[in-house]
Nucleic acid binder design. Structure first.
Lengths: 144, 144
DNA sequence: CCGTATCCCTGGAGATACTG
DNA sequence: CAGTATCTCCAGGGATACGG
């Protein structure tokens, strides 16, 4: 605040469509949040459960950011135990095809290398991530 | 270094396909790099021109990372002015549908948003996006 | 049950300058 | 031309604890 001269920083003029949509999904967990909202509105605690490794702080931050960008809406329910429901807006839904494409290729990749792992024990190119099948997930659509 | 302190950071087991493909495209510029390689192999300097706002350092870092993950290949040409060509691998190409979906929705968003804006004022401030066709060759597909 | 408030850490990214 | 070497900056993120 002291110095008036500061570089624009976030200005980030979206020179291209790719950058534009990427800007809406900023943050590592944003796509996941959108994904888990794709089927139906969900509550904060549900999302936390859906995305086990996200912290409340970050989930809250993402939700707020997505809300401020018009991708999700927040609805507070005046129930005895206070609850909140988050849902995708039409704008948020526009991103679903892309997110699904991402999930789709990811799924394929996982399959392929699980197969190739048993056949070809070589391919020491990249050793990342394990199958780590999630125990179970109560998700209407295919899980990300 | 050398402290016995163990932080158990855990590389993060990507429990879901979405996270998996996201992991491959880590870094803000990665998707753009893949996009600009989609049509044909390109050289370092060309990529720099394609993505004007990226610094050499970051471009280099992204390319190395993408290479280490098996998404791109690097080929050094022994020409008088040394040059290098980067190209997508089959694995890299598998991500194209998703990236194109992203670009597609971004394009649509921009259109919508420009239409809605034409009602209010002339969009003069935002016109500095150039496809960066430096007279060399252009992309068969629309620019991101 | 739904968050927000610290504290701290990591790494992605910008700018600039310099070699093979 | 194709990178690497520094340095700095800061937003995103993990953990924990606390307030509504």
């Amino acid at each position: 605040m002291g110095l008036p001269v500061r570089k624009s920083k976030v200005a980030a003029p979206p020179a291209c469509p790719l950058t534009e949509s990427l800007a809406l999904l900023r943050g590592a967990w944003a796509p996941n949040v959108v994904w888990y909202l794709s089927a139906e509105p969900r509550r904060f605690g549900e999302l936390r459960h859906d995305i086990p490794r996200i912290s409340a702080r970050v989930l809250s931050a993402r939700l707020r950011e997505l809300e401020s960008r018009g991708l999700v809406t927040r609805r507070v329910l005046a129930t005895s135990p206070p609850s909140a429901e988050y849902a995708l807006t039409p704008l948020g839904r526009e991103l679903l095809p892309a997110i699904q494409a991402l999930a789709s290729v990811g799924r394929k990749l996982i399959e392929e290398w699980e197969e190739g792992r048993s056949k070809r024990a070589s391919a020491a190119a990249r050793t990342r991530t394990k199958p780590a099948v999630t125990g179970r997930r109560k998700h209407p659509t295919t899980s990300p």
